[in-house]
């Protein structure tokens, strides 16, 4: 097996609309909610969801932000390659707000642990939820579970989940591939 499709373009579109619908169900007009995309790959998913919510539900003024977790990771000095940071763009108050973290794949849970620490630099949210497109079950290293999940996937450590975004060619899809060992 080299590349197995988990979600094709149509299925992915349906899943995104369902996730957007669930968000609207729980957050209504998003007045007290801030959607935060986890850099780098959660950000694209975030804006896809925001665009669906705006177009399908006519909800404008959704507060969003982009959070980079690099400096909050727990594996500093334990990796061979350099941990290079992405930008953080949080220009809104998160104090007392309902925050939803948005990321593409939930695997060990360590990125989300880092995000939970990183968001504190911007205030104390009233509560934090987690939305992921793909939940890789049975691979968690920390007690972290999603509140919204697009698809649950059973995979092993030597596999990798790849989310590809290509709106122009209508090739958005999620694949299960073999991890390339460096």
């Amino acid at each position: 097996m080299n590349k197995k499709t988990i979600l094709n373009y149509k299925e992915l579109d349906l899943t995104l609309r369902r996730l957007a619908c669930e968000l609207v169900e729980n957050h209504q007009d998003f007045t007290d909610t801030v959607l935060i995309g986890i850099q780098p790959r959660g950000v694209y998913l975030l804006y896809k969801l925001v665009s669906i919510i705006q177009n399908d539900y006519n909800i404008e003024n959704i507060s969003t932000g982009e959070l980079d977790i690099t400096f909050f990771r727990d594996d500093f000095g334990r990796r061979d390659e350099l941990l290079k940071a992405n930008s953080t763009e949080i220009n809104i108050e998160v104090e007392g707000k309902k925050v939803v973290f948005v990321d593409d794949v939930l695997y060990s849970g360590r990125s989300i642990r880092s995000a939970l620490s990183a968001i504190q630099s911007f205030g104390r949210p009233s509560n934090i939820e987690l939305l992921v497109l793909i939940d890789r079950r049975f691979s968690r290293e920390l007690p972290i579970q999603p509140d919204y999940s697009g698809r649950k996937v059973d995979s092993i450590d030597t596999q990798r989940v790849e989310v590809e975004w290509n709106d122009e060619k209508q090739k958005n899809a999620v694949y299960l591939t073999k991890k390339v060992l460096k």
């Binding site: 690099t70 909050f72 500093f76 000095g77 290079k84 992405n86 930008s87 630099s121 911007f122």
Partner: peptide, 23 residues
Amino acid sequence: FETADKFKEIINRPIKKVPTLRD
């Protein structure tokens, strides 16, 4: 310089500290 950009954003946050070099 690219890395400094990221740290400049951090030192302008309400909480200006990151745990990176804690050990």
